[in-house]
């Protein structure tokens, strides 16, 4: 979706302001919101792409006004409610009022280290051949889906070069919709800054994105 999350090349956000000796979390509630989000992945049954889509799928003014963990928490509440795991009146009451819905799996303390160490690799076996090879000239398609995509607007319609054939990976555009992993070949595509931003851009700058095959066409 062409939402506020797609920030590359937008103006007016001001300078980057690093914080000296920044703590990992800035408030107790951020810790809990972070941990709840990680722990609810198992019982919730959603995948990372559904999570990302839920976070970005809100009015741009809201998205930009919310802090990072506020966005995470709002998405966690929403996904929990959508799946019938919690109800509004329970959050208002601060207590469970209805019997729990059966869930496949929960995260026990004994499994935390193992689960984090395992992570969630996205590379998949394939018997298809990659359409592009290193050095090929490609163009990012001009697509504007209303649903989740990982092709940022600033590269759409622009020509670049395949720098690396990464492998076959879960396709977020499908996975976010619950339409299956639909693995696709993934490439690192390199663009000249002048191609992306025009003749005044810094000629010493190149930018790459990692793009799945359905995002690309021969240039």
């Amino acid at each position: 979706m062409n939402g506020a999350q797609d920030l590359g090349g937008t103006h007016g956000h001001g300078p980057v302001e690093p914080e000296r000796n920044e703590p990992v979390f800035h408030a107790e509630w951020e810790k809990r919101a972070f941990a709840l989000t990680l722990a609810m992945g198992m019982p919730g049954g959603w995948n990372i792409d559904m999570g990302r889509f839920t976070r970005e799928n809100r009015p741009p003014g809201e998205y930009l006004a919310m802090s990072y963990y506020q966005i995470w928490f709002a998405a966690l509440e929403q996904m929990s409610k959508e799946r019938g795991l919690v109800a509004d009146e329970e959050i208002d009451a601060g207590h469970s009022l209805h019997p729990p819905k059966p869930v496949k799996q929960t995260l026990s303390p004994g499994d935390v280290a193992k689960a984090l160490y395992r992570g969630g690799p996205t590379e998949r076996e394939t018997n298809t051949a990659a359409k592009f090879k290193t050095g090929d000239k490609v163009r990012a398609k001009n697509i504007n889906p209303l649903t989740h995509t990982r092709l940022p607007r600033y590269v759409r319609g622009h020509a670049g070069v395949i720098e690396r054939v990464i492998g076959c990976h879960v396709f977020p555009d499908s996975n976010a919709l619950g339409a299956g992993e639909n693995p696709q070949w993934l490439y690192t595509v390199r663009f000249e800054a002048c191609e992306l931003w025009g003749a005044d851009a810094d000629p010493s700058v190149k930018v790459s994105v990692d793009a799945w095959e359905p995002y690309l066409e021969q240039a």
């Binding site: 709840l36 928490f73 509440e77 929990s80 919690v86 959050i91 208002d92 009451a93 601060g94 929960t106």
Partner: peptide
């Protein structure tokens, strides 16, 4: 956040 954590804990999800 506290309310949601309590509900999810009471239900045995976390």
């Amino acid at each position: 956040v506290r309310a949601l954590e309590t509900v999810l804990t009471e239900k045995g999800y976390v």
